[in-house]
């Protein structure tokens, strides 16, 4: 790892001030992506601003939605009775990110700020039609993701919390890469009174996306039978050593069927 400066911010204002005073600072959440990246010398920030003491870990019921603080760890989401009752699909998703040690450190805010194209949480935010709250504004999921590892966040903007509306039913099913366990394809299906939303992670060249064709099919008939073979186009899907775009297209259809069957 290159040399760097470490600062533990006391609160959000302190964190923003520390980042602004650095030439190329980075916010540090759980560090489950950032620290391995630094170890590989793939990044060289001159300052790491740790957000762990900023009081951003919480899970609250807001009636029609749940609000999760940005520094809430995957293990806390996975073990929350409130989340289990409101959005069991999210419990399942959080309980299957990485491994136990990653879940003991990794955070929802860190995952969403990083926007890894194979991360799980982006699919939940998009399918649930959630909102990202920062110190200056609230960003709808539709406007938040901006391509692989890119988001609408400004350099000094910190996610405070995420609001996730409670669906009638939902499920998340992923096909993990056999080695990395990241999603090769992950599909989050959420059914609301005003329609079905299907978000796909792990597959798109521009990161997470909504599968509008699948949503239309499920709005007409909310059943696994509604998803026909060949319904998903391979246009815009990643093709790499792990899977071709065609195979990913097939997996999107299959994971969607499984998600519909698993919806609770």
């Amino acid at each position: 790892m290159y040399s760097t400066k470490y600062v533990k911010a006391r609160d959000i204002d302190d964190a923003v001030k520390a980042l602004k005073s650095a030439d190329d600072g980075k916010f540090l959440a759980g560090g489950m992506t950032l620290i391995p990246t630094l170890k590989q010398r793939l990044a060289n920030p001159d300052c790491l601003v740790d957000l762990s003491a900023c009081g951003l870990s919480s899970i609250d019921d807001e009636g029609s939605a749940i609000r999760i603080g940005a520094m809430t760890r995957h293990v806390d989401v996975a073990e929350s009775a409130l989340v289990q009752k409101a959005i069991p699909a999210l419990t399942h998703l959080a309980a299957h990110i990485g491994d136990r040690q990653v879940r003991n450190r990794g955070t929802i805010g860190g995952s969403l700020a990083n926007n890894d194209p194979a991360a799980c949480y982006p699919a939940a935010l998009l399918a649930l039609g959630g909102t990202v709250h920062t110190q200056s504004r609230s960003i709808a999921a539709e406007d938040y993701f901006d391509g692989m590892f890119e988001t609408a966040l400004e350099e000094d903007e910190i996610i405070h919390a995420v609001s996730l509306p409670k669906p009638e039913k939902a499920a998340y099913v992923k096909f993990p890469n056999p080695a990395s366990r990241y999603a090769m394809v992950g599909v989050f299906v959420a059914k609301f009174a005003d329609g079905v939303r299907v978000a796909v992670t792990g597959a798109g060249e521009d990161g997470v996306f909504r599968a509008h064709d699948l949503e239309a099919a499920l709005n007409a008939n909310f059943s696994a039978d509604a998803i026909a073979d060949g319904m998903v186009s391979s246009d815009g899907l990643m093709s790499d050593i792990h899977a071709s775009a065609d195979y990913r297209a097939h997996l999107i259809g299959e994971m969607t069927r499984r998600a519909v069957n698993a919806c609770t």
Partner: peptide, 19 residues
């Protein structure tokens, strides 16, 4: 490299001592 921090298992290669 797994150790316990405040009773929870973590990978000690993926966290700074300063944290």
């Amino acid at each position: 490299c797994i150790v316990h921090v405040n009773g929870e298992s973590i990978k000690s290669c993926s966290i700074l001592a300063a944290q």
